[in-house]
Computed example of a mutant assay.
Amino acid sequence: MKSITKYAESFNAYLTRKCNNQAPSSLFDPIDYILNLGGKRIRPALVLMTTDLFDGHVDHAYSAAMAIEVFHNFSLVHDDIMDDAPLRRQHPTVHEKWDINTAILSGDSMLIWAYQCLEDYDQHSFYTLVQLFSKTAQEVCSGQQMDMDFENLEEVSIEKYLEMIRLKTAVLVACAFKMGSIIAGTSLENQDHIYSFGINLGIAFQIQDDLLDVYGNPKTFGKQVGGDIIENKKTFLYLKALELSSEDDRNQLKHLFSINPKNTQAKIETVKQIYDQYEIKSISSERIERYKQKALLSLNQLNLPDDKKQKLKNFAQELMHREA
């Protein structure tokens, strides 16, 4: 079994071969553009890695890996339209580079293409993969809608937030793991355990992302520190602070997350002071650790040699090793 980076590099080579000039260019050029903007290719790499992990033929996994990467990027194209985002990975978004109608139609074509990728499998595998893929796609849409709904809700529970990130983020990671296990033909028990591993790892990763948004190192985080605060996003940290804070601090937090001042740095610092007062950083770290332990419990239940389990543990540690 290779490193996740090697699987990602292998997938990139496959993607390059698949992205070729198709007509009409006005439909397919935006697709090639978004797919070639980069990214870590974690999800397709996980499909390849898991197939290898369970002694499957990695060559058989590329179509499924392509399906999940195309779907992921389809969701980004449409998310960017909904968010009116000007940039994606430091480049103009599809709807900015072309126009909204082109972005919608190219995104729709990507969703169709994702399903077409799965047609490369035999009847039994195709049915199982499509069943999982359709369930995941619907869940991602539900998570996106929940996230949008939260913008207009004054009260959001932590339980609802955790369900939102499970749907919007974690299920696609879990799907990648399980698709690889299906292609390899491992047991249903292994398929369920690797899926659970992916769910809990995905939730831990997103809460850590919330944490790093406030406390991360600007040089290594890769995004603007404090971005969630500037955008008034109801993250785990914000919701936990509301739960624990005094009435005065709670009212101040609600006020700060309802405004868009020119001096964003002052807003960030005030919110951080409230978070520090109620030890939100420590509480968030504890919740991340809880989900990591759940993931490791599922990993330990896999019917795999210890050296292969260790490879998965190494991947989890690599994924989560982002310093605040």
Results as ranks from 00 to 15, higher is better:
247 E>T: 14
306 D>K: 11
83 D>H: 09
142 S>I: 09
170 A>I: 03
66 M>K: 12
31 I>W: 07
170 A>G: 10
109 S>G: 09
314 N>F: 07
91 H>V: 05
259 I>W: 07
243 E>H: 14
177 F>M: 13
36 N>D: 02
161 Y>E: 06
117 C>P: 12
157 S>H: 07
113 W>N: 04
226 G>Q: 06
137 A>H: 05
17 R>M: 10
140 V>G: 09
232 N>E: 07
37 L>F: 13
57 H>F: 13
87 L>E: 09
71 F>G: 05
68 I>C: 09
163 E>M: 12
171 V>C: 02
13 A>L: 15
165 I>D: 02
147 D>I: 05
277 Q>N: 11
96 E>V: 10
151 E>S: 01
301 Q>N: 15
134 S>P: 08
277 Q>G: 00
68 I>V: 15
281 K>A: 07
52 D>E: 12
263 N>Q: 12
170 A>R: 13
206 Q>R: 01
158 I>L: 15
54 F>I: 04
214 V>H: 05
68 I>L: 12
110 M>Q: 05
286 E>G: 01
239 L>T: 01
131 Q>E: 15
102 T>S: 09
162 L>G: 02
306 D>T: 08
44 P>T: 08
68 I>F: 10
106 S>M: 11
248 D>Y: 06
83 D>G: 06
90 Q>C: 00
273 Q>F: 00
58 V>I: 14
323 E>R: 03
161 Y>W: 06
319 L>M: 11
52 D>N: 15
198 G>I: 06
130 V>P: 09
273 Q>D: 15
117 C>Q: 10
178 K>L: 00
45 A>N: 07
107 G>T: 08
108 D>S: 08
212 L>M: 11
115 Y>W: 09
205 F>I: 09
294 K>Q: 14
15 L>I: 12
61 A>Y: 05
307 D>Y: 11
311 K>L: 14
314 N>A: 09
269 E>C: 00
101 N>G: 10
108 D>A: 01
174 A>F: 14
228 D>I: 02
195 Y>F: 12
307 D>W: 03
51 T>L: 02
162 L>N: 12
209 D>W: 04
48 L>S: 03
157 S>R: 06
135 K>L: 11
52 D>I: 02
25 S>Y: 15
162 L>S: 08
273 Q>N: 07
279 E>D: 12
273 Q>W: 01
321 H>V: 04
306 D>F: 02
123 Q>N: 15
245 S>F: 01
210 D>R: 00
210 D>W: 11
190 N>C: 01
210 D>P: 12
75 S>D: 07
232 N>K: 02
307 D>Q: 08
145 Q>C: 09
228 D>Y: 06
5 T>R: 11
116 Q>T: 10
261 P>I: 03
167 L>Y: 15
248 D>R: 11
200 N>S: 07
26 S>D: 15
113 W>S: 00
263 N>R: 04
258 S>M: 10
18 K>E: 13
318 E>M: 14
19 C>K: 06
132 L>V: 06
225 V>D: 04
196 S>D: 13
142 S>V: 13
256 L>Q: 01
192 D>G: 01
315 F>V: 13
157 S>L: 04
95 H>P: 05
128 T>D: 11
243 E>W: 06
89 R>C: 06
32 D>M: 00
231 E>K: 08
242 L>Y: 02
83 D>K: 05
47 V>M: 14
291 Y>P: 10
87 L>R: 01
215 Y>G: 08
235 T>I: 00
36 N>S: 14
177 F>A: 07
48 L>P: 03
320 M>K: 06
300 N>G: 03
234 K>H: 05
